[in-house]
Amino acid sequence: MNHEISNQLKQNQDIRENLKFLAENFSGKIVFSTSFGIEDQVITDVIFSQKLSAVEVFTLDTGRLFQETYATWDKTQIQYGQKISAYYPNNKKIEGFINENGINPFYESVNLRKQCCHIRKVEPLQRALKDVKIWITGLRAEHSPNRNELEILQWDEQYELYKYNPLLHWTTEEVKDYVTKKGVPYNVLHDQGFVSIGCAPCTRALKEGEDFRAGRWWWEDTSKKECGLHS
């Protein structure tokens, strides 16, 4: 990526202009991954409202998502009249994993949980990012202490591409404000105390005083709870 493009993204705070700029320069090589969380819905609105067809919007359907997440997916496609691609786990691998370890083995050990995440999320993501140069994400620094060192634009060694995190420094209030003013559909679980929403068996609402990441894999005693999608 040349310095002109890099400077444009780092210095310009208008994500509408930046996403349009990227779509024009990396047509067919740029994707956005959504899990239908409220911040992802902001980016989806920017892409779909500007009809940036050069950007593929996709999601990872793990097979264990909340019904409310599927409802958000459906409402989003209907409201904008545009499709969101889906990537699924390899059926043989997930069948083998479940037949060997049971339906909910992730509660038993961190290792089994990470194996489940790898099959259901990481491998499908690897397929989705094949030949991609720019990966747009909805990562926000508020969501995890591990994300404080991220940059708005950075090289990702794991996938060998540039990752663009346009909402990295947005606050929760700014995200909610945008969604409310624009009438963007969002996951109703956010109104029930859910902040970071993943698979149903691995996500719960936050209790008063808990940090943003406490609702994910809450049974694990670790401060670095990630699924492996973002190294």
Rank of each mutant, 00 (worst) to 15 (best):
N2V: 08
N7G: 08
Q11G: 14
L22A: 09
A23I: 04
E24V: 04
E24Y: 08
E24Q: 14
S27I: 06
I30V: 14
V31R: 07
S33P: 01
T34H: 07
I38S: 12
S49V: 13
Q50E: 15
T59H: 09
L60A: 11
R64M: 13
F66K: 07
F66V: 09
E68M: 02
W73D: 07
T76M: 04
Y87S: 08
N90S: 06
K93P: 02
I94F: 04
E95W: 03
G96D: 15
E108D: 13
S109I: 13
V110E: 15
K114C: 01
R120A: 10
K121R: 13
K121E: 11
P124Q: 05
K133M: 11
K133N: 12
I136C: 00
H143T: 05
H143C: 03
N148E: 12
L150E: 10
E151R: 09
E151V: 02
Q158S: 13
P166Y: 05
P166E: 07
L168W: 00
W170I: 10
K176I: 10
D177P: 03
Y178Q: 01
K181S: 09
G183F: 02
P185K: 11
G193V: 02
V195Y: 07
V195Q: 03
S196P: 01
S196Q: 01
C199Y: 02
C199G: 01
A200P: 00
P201K: 05
C202L: 08
R204N: 02
L206W: 00
K207W: 00
K207E: 00
G215D: 08
